[in-house]
Every structure is written in structure tokens, then in C-alpha cells.
Simulated scan of single mutants.
Amino acid sequence: MVGAADSAPASPEVLTKTADEIALITLNRPDRLNAFTPGMRELYLAALDRADRDPGVRAIVVTGAGRAFCAGADYTALDGLDAETLRARNAAQPVPFDTAMRLRKPLIAALNGPVAGIGLAHALMADVRFAAPEASFTSAFPRFGLTAEGGTAWLLSRLVGTARALDVLCSSRTVGAAEAERIGLVQWIVPAGELLDRARAYAAALAENSAYSLARMREQVHAAWEQDWPTAYERSVDLVYESLDRREFAELAARRAARRAAPAAPAEGAPAAGAAPVPPRPSA
């Protein structure tokens, strides 16, 4: 890709690269299947926040290095962990854990391999998910005596329904890519060698749209999960009024009008203006 540049000093555990208005965030502990440590979690959340605040970024793609997206929390991070320690850690967290749900920009996940535990929560917070055939999904929580952390139960039930969410969470079984697509956990399965390019291309297509529109519609969809129909409808009406009063709407309308008024370029092989008409081809 042209114009690629680091958007922040490279970290060994989380890498960020920005090109063509797309921020690519890569979880980079391939020797540990990109399992999260507390420090890595902070770096990832900070990378999301930084990309969201960067005016040169229109969409965000997240993926994992090596053969996994994220295998959950690193076992060493769980050793000796207790509620008091975790409360203190969360209270000191400079960027909220659910930052992905608060973004103003689209977030696309390119899931290249296993997705487990807290890695599943992060994947579910993306707006859409591309998966390689090698991708697999497991909650892992009940194996450690834990519950559905990171808002996983809320997210998963809204994507796949109550019964399927309970199956995935409580059984802790492994869900393959094909099943994940069938139940709506992921939207597209693409060959591993094309995964990142397809996710970037999708992000680039979104980036061509109005940043205002994308941010507001993301808010609408998330809010609508907890709204009744009258509330959601009235909000949509209010946002239309807001949209119509914005300069961007007027500018885009003027561009469309200018394109309609411009004379159409003659098709290849068509006669120029004023030329003698070509007689119709006789029918066979």
C-alpha cells in the first residue's frame, strides 16, 4: 500500500500502521498466540483510542500476527489474580476496556486463527468480522471458573441469539469458521492469503462514505439494541434534521447536481456531437 507510515512508535506487542486513511492494529505476540498480558491490553486500547482521535484515519482494522488472532489472557496474567487486584487495575486503566464500542469510526476484525476468551470479547466488539478458514472460536471462561467477561454475553447473544450464545459460552466448545459464518458470528470467510487485503478493501470502501454518517449510524445501531421502536424512530428523525442542516449535505448535493448538469462523455466509438447518425444495425 502506498504512503504507509507508522502512526505511533512501534511496540513489540501491539503494532500500528496507517496507510490510505486506514489504521491497521496488529496484536504481536505470535509466540504466545497473541495472548493478552495487562500491559498488552493497555497498548491495544491506547492504539484504538489513538486511531479514533487521528483525523487522518477513517477506518480501523485489527488482526493478529502469526497463526492466531488472540488466545485470550496469558496464563501468567491469571496466576495469583484476585478481585482486588483486578479492580485496582481497571480503575487505573487510562482507556476504557470497551473503547471499541465507543469508537466514532468503523472497526473491522480480520481473524486469522484461534479466537478465545477475552480475545473473543475484543473480536465481538468489531463492527464486522472477516475470518480465515483456519479461524476458530471458544469462550474458554468456564474452564477457568470464570464468567463471560468483557461484555461477551451481551455481545454474543445479540449476534447469534440466546440459545446459540448459551451453547458457545457454557459448553466452551470450539466453533469452526464455517459454523461461525452460518450462525452470524462472522460475516465473511476468505482465504488466509487474502484476509488482510479483503478487510482493508472493505475498510477503504467505508472510508469513502461520510465520517459523520458512519459515526451516527454506529451510535444508532448500538443504542437501538436497548430502545423501543418509538424511541429509535424519533431519534432517526432527529438525526435526519441534524444531517440536513450540515454543510456536508449541501456540498454533496451540489456535487451531484453538477454531475447531472455536465454533458455526458460520448461512449467509445460513439459519434461526436454534430456527426451524422449511424444507421441502425439490421436485425438478424
Rank of each mutant, 00 (worst) to 15 (best):
M1W: 01
V2S: 15
A4C: 01
D6L: 06
D6P: 00
D6M: 03
S7E: 01
A8E: 13
S11Y: 03
L15Q: 15
T16Q: 13
A19S: 10
D20E: 13
E21A: 14
A23H: 04
I25Q: 04
L27M: 08
D31Y: 03
R32L: 11
A35Y: 07
F36N: 01
T37E: 07
R41F: 07
Y44G: 02
Y44Q: 14
Y44H: 10
L45K: 14
A47W: 04
A47R: 05
A47G: 02
D49N: 14
R50M: 11
D54I: 10
G56L: 00
A59D: 01
I60G: 11
T63F: 07
T63H: 10
A65W: 04
R67C: 04
F69E: 02
C70R: 05
A71V: 01
A73C: 09
A73E: 15
A73Y: 11
Y75I: 12
T76E: 15
A77I: 04
L78T: 13
D82M: 06
A83F: 13
E84D: 12
N90M: 15
A91Y: 06
A92N: 09
D98I: 05
T99C: 08
T99Y: 08
A100T: 08
M101F: 10
R102P: 06
L103H: 15
L103E: 10
L103D: 09
L107I: 06
I108T: 15
A109G: 15
N112D: 06
V115D: 10
G117N: 11
G119E: 07
H122Y: 09
A123G: 11
A126W: 05
E134C: 01
S139W: 12
R143G: 15
G145L: 04
T147S: 14
T152L: 03
A153W: 02
L156E: 02
S157G: 12
S157E: 15
R158M: 07
L159P: 07
D167Q: 08
D167S: 08
L169N: 02
S171M: 07
S172M: 07
R173P: 00
V175T: 12
A177L: 01
A178T: 14
A178D: 15
E181Y: 02
V186I: 08
Q187D: 03
W188A: 01
I189M: 06
V190T: 02
A192F: 00
G193Y: 00
D197S: 11
D197T: 02
R198Y: 04
R200F: 03
Y202N: 01
A203S: 15
A204V: 07
A204K: 12
E208A: 14
E208Y: 01
S213I: 04
S213E: 06
M217F: 08
M217I: 09
R218W: 01
V221M: 08
H222Q: 14
H222P: 00
A223D: 04
A224G: 10
W225T: 03
Q227S: 06
P230C: 06
E234M: 02
R235E: 09
S236Q: 08
V237N: 03
V237L: 12
V237I: 13
L239F: 05
L244Y: 12
D245T: 06
R247W: 03
L252A: 13
L252V: 11
R255I: 05
R255V: 05
A257G: 06
A258K: 10
A262H: 10
P263E: 02
A267L: 11
G269M: 08
G274M: 10
P280H: 02
R281K: 15
